[in-house]
Design a protein around this nucleic acid. Sequence first.
DNA 1: TAAAATTTTTAGGCAAAGCTAAATAATTTT
DNA 2: AAAATTATTTAGCTTTGCCTAAAAATTTTA
Lengths: 227, 227
Amino acid sequence: MYSQSEENYLKAIYHLEESSEKGVSTSKLSEELQTKAASVTEMLKRLAEKKLVNYQKYYGVSLTPEGKSWALAIIRKHRLWEYFLVECLNFNWDEVHEVAEQLEHIQSKKLVEELDCFLGRPSFDPHGDPIPNAAGVLPEFKKRRLSEFKVGDTLICKGFSDASSSFLQFLDQHKIGLDTLVSIKSIQEFDESMLVKVRKSEIMLSKTATQNIFVEKNKESKIKEKV
Amino acid sequence: MYSQSEENYLKAIYHLEESSEKGVSTSKLSEELQTKAASVTEMLKRLAEKKLVNYQKYYGVSLTPEGKSWALAIIRKHRLWEYFLVECLNFNWDEVHEVAEQLEHIQSKKLVEELDCFLGRPSFDPHGDPIPNAAGVLPEFKKRRLSEFKVGDTLICKGFSDASSSFLQFLDQHKIGLDTLVSIKSIQEFDESMLVKVRKSEIMLSKTATQNIFVEKNKESKIKEKV
DNA sequence: TAAAATTTTTAGGCAAAGCTAAATAATTTT
DNA sequence: AAAATTATTTAGCTTTGCCTAAAAATTTTA
Ligand SMILES: [Mn+2]
Ligand SMILES: [Mn+2]
Ligand SMILES: [Mn+2]
Ligand SMILES: [Mn+2]
């Protein structure tokens, strides 16, 4: 239906719309997609003609409902494939993104639905990112950063917003992953770094790190510790 | 490494080299790939520059060792994905080809090897076509057509060379698939059509059909019938 | 608010991969 | 062996998606 390139633009616009208050600019897009601004302008004109985006010369771009639903379909595929790679094919969570970038463009309604079913209709991908359902609806979840909490809190890791290989490998090294329990032992005042306890060991996390770890308040930690 | 289009040409040349004695001509390729002869000529020049084919103006084309090994890698992926779709995702064997045409172009050594492993290193795809191993070596197998046999012979279906949806659906309707036992009851002299027995029922197969069904002599039919 | 800086768009090119129409080479027929 | 037919290649054009350099609009700064 749409080319790989067009799909990548839609996805990039979606992500930028999510992560910033203001409209999406040509330069932000060109940075995200590693292309030149001139190429972005051209593509935006094409996408606007196809009614996938609202584009006003010099004033940025936003997705139309049609564009948004297409973007969500691509993201759904991307995250389902990442889940498949980790759960079925022994990929580590820092190796999946590149391959998923290719697989997300495969066109087949049946393939996506059967894959979803085969995997047990997962709600979150290996990085804790929510997987939209077939209708494009994202699962309910609240995003709070580890950096927002205070000494004494015990939390469950639910996602990681910097998906770079190096950050994911750092987390691996310290055995921090999805559903890992983390309790805050102390916070340095001058740089807001945190000393946290993970299982038996204590780890120092920089503010950059704690801002990129999404957590949930742990309601059942007492119970689980007894079991 | 190579574009999807280039990969499709390599695959097409491979298949045509296999299925015909003589060299592969521009017109055969244009027919196979549903493009115009002029486009084929252009692509052949590009592939020759990249040392993937031997191309002599006006005298057809053949794969170099490099080209052949790349073609086999694509075919390996195609057939592994077809196997995956049928075995894991509830696809019927007449629905897989189109999706596999897309999946075969995904680039990731690890993906292919892990998929192969996950599937249990199958030797044949859902249509009975041999799957090359990682080194590009095809499993041993002998191709004989049902049309070569005579009344009284009992045979096991091992492959189907016309992979069109309609032929595969026809086989489905008559419950003929891989490893189905078929015995020849009679052969019409005037059109060489065959009356065969499959399980409890008798089916009439045209010569076109029997030429497209690959079989093996059944060594254990007596034993199996007793069990 | 006018000048400077920055961002965005336009203009003009390029490569891949397709097309049609015309030219040319190879093959078949007479 | 020449003519006719068929196959193949060349020439010229199109679209997609990218680029650089120049022009124009917007935003920031003074
Ligand atoms: Mn990813
Ligand atoms: Mn992810
Ligand atoms: Mn196939
Ligand atoms: Mn097949």
